Amino acid sequence: MNNPKFIANFNKKFSKFINNLLEKNLNKLNVDNFKNLLINNKIFLSIVALIILFLSYLSFPNIYNKADVALEIKKNLKNKLNLEFNFQEDLDYKFLPRPHFTTNNSSINSREDKITEIKKLKVYVSLENLFSLKNIKLNHVILEEANFN
């Protein structure tokens, strides 16, 4: 295997093979094929860009301060349901299957009385105002494993 002639012959055959492949494929390339390739890539790249923009739009609430989000959600829940929610843990934002905030171990208070203890609370928000913390609209509130007094 250390034969220099063998290595030289192998290199010649390999370079001829590469040259033949290049000639064959470059001869097929003309202006029409090049235009089709560019158009297909533009469509593909624009679809990828739209998907990235949409996912970044959905993940935008992760940038907010969680304490501010919790305060705003508590305010919206008090205005809509006339109940005071207390979150013992931080809110987690998830955008699949729909944008929503979740928290564990929360409770509902009415004046001084504790009405319920909730293991898991999900608050679904609308897609319309995700950029504005002050204008977040709440769609649904789901209580999971709640013990009512």
Rank of each mutant, 00 (worst) to 15 (best):
I108M: 05
D68M: 09
L143H: 06
F85S: 09
D113K: 12
N129H: 13
E144P: 05
N86L: 14
N30P: 06
L45K: 08
M1E: 04
F85V: 14
N147Y: 04
I39C: 06
K12F: 10
H140I: 14
D32Y: 06
K122H: 10
I142V: 15
D92R: 07
F54E: 00
S15G: 03
L55H: 07
I136G: 02
I39S: 08
F6A: 14
T116M: 12
F6R: 13
I63W: 00
S46A: 13
P97W: 03
Y93P: 04
I63C: 02
N135Q: 10
K122M: 11
L138F: 05
S107G: 05
L127T: 08
N62Q: 12
L29A: 12
F85E: 10
L77E: 09
K94R: 07
L81V: 08
L21A: 09
L91Y: 02
L29V: 12
N105I: 09
S110L: 11
N82F: 08
F131V: 05
L29N: 02
L83N: 09
E117T: 14
K42F: 08
N65A: 06
N86Q: 15
N149I: 07
T116Y: 04
F60I: 10
K28T: 06
L83P: 00
I7E: 09
I115E: 09
E89I: 09
I51H: 03
L130E: 01
K42G: 07
I73N: 04
R111E: 14
S15Q: 12
I142G: 01
F87S: 13
K134R: 11
S106K: 03
T116A: 15
L138I: 15
